[in-house]
Design a protein around this nucleic acid. Sequence first.
DNA 1: TCATCATTCAATAAATCTCTTGAATGATGT
DNA 2: ACATCATTCAAGAGATTTATTGAATGATGA
Lengths: 223, 223
Amino acid sequence: MSSESPKQALFAQFAAVAKAAAHPHRLELLEQLAQGERSVEVLADRTRVSVANASQHLQHLRRAGLVAARRDGKFVFYRLAHDAVLGLLTSLRRIAELQSAEVERVVRSYFNDRDSLEAVSRLELMDRLKAGIVTVLDVRPEDEFALGHLPGAINLPLSELEKRLADLDPDREIVAYCRGPYCVLSYEAVAMLRARGFKVRRLEDGLPEWRAAGLPVEAGTSG
Amino acid sequence: MSSESPKQALFAQFAAVAKAAAHPHRLELLEQLAQGERSVEVLADRTRVSVANASQHLQHLRRAGLVAARRDGKFVFYRLAHDAVLGLLTSLRRIAELQSAEVERVVRSYFNDRDSLEAVSRLELMDRLKAGIVTVLDVRPEDEFALGHLPGAINLPLSELEKRLADLDPDREIVAYCRGPYCVLSYEAVAMLRARGFKVRRLEDGLPEWRAAGLPVEAGTSG
DNA sequence: TCATCATTCAATAAATCTCTTGAATGATGT
DNA sequence: ACATCATTCAAGAGATTTATTGAATGATGA
């Protein structure tokens, strides 16, 4: 540490940050945390790893300064340490998309690429919101919605969407969104709603990117 | 690879990008490449690693899509694959700065923090350039200058600065710049010139950031 | 105090990464 | 063809990282 040149010491610090991000499980944890704070158990459950393993990865992330922790009773809630972490995730995604035909292949085979091409940008959605001609549909689970959502959004989790179609005005254009650019929920919601004759498109990215852009976010439950 | 879920496959790809960046030597190589393309030998020399080792690291970076290579005769020239790589470096730096008191300590003990506080932002420099009231001084070596520099900049490499003080107008304000936020050259130039009575400040970041911001860059040698 | 539960710690084997060494490749000029 | 030089490849020892297991910690409620 102290025997290195200052320059090497700096690069070592930067490398430590990159190393913390350099594991699939940890990236998945970060994606979850981009939605809002979560307990270890919830994170372990959603990322399909053992609790002990999740805990270890989270501490790795904490040591590198990517996440922060808060204790509340028996639970420890983790959250992203700073918006710059979301920027890091975005950079990684962009580079991977540019380089690897593999990423494109995965995305195209898993998602419906016609839908992804017709995605609505944040700016476009802002315009339409001002004009009041669009229904914003949040298809994430209720708890995530409660922690924060787009202003005026309606929460219909994908699991309940089919039962509650009556809550949607069939004459208004719908924009569905989810956790982020690769979140499957909104793709599936769009596919399902289109099959029922709704005019619906997908928001290009998800809530974390919206928030990071400095756009307003509401909290609490609603209709 | 193909037995994973699509989601896991994506995170694995993103992790591969992060892993490529997760080594001090490779980050230093990337910083060098942010200046412009370089041969393996030059990179090995500047980062103080063996040629074989540099070659291995460069190929690691190439496989992950962070750099690209071009053969010209006996030499192979590497360059950053895309601007997004610079964004990645910036994210890593920001996170490291936020988290680690260590980084701040290193920076403050090595650099003169008074100088760093008085750094000029890109926007401020743009304004002053338009008003024509400032001399822009590039203190990098000649070859780097030739590959690209700020419009109207004068190239006085640090090694020659002392001999060629006459090239500078002592009545005009000077803004010195270098390779990037942690490049020592411009700090030293500022210290030296101030000791001689010049009015001189440092540009907040270096040429790569200027270029990435979409601002104009000149090439070729000049006075 | 005791039992419970979320989280963390500690230890280990398996896998991966890194640097060095020396040879191989590929382009150039004689 | 040959020698030269920049770069890459291949192999192996040493260090680091990872997932698992089971135990330890720390807070809660009876």
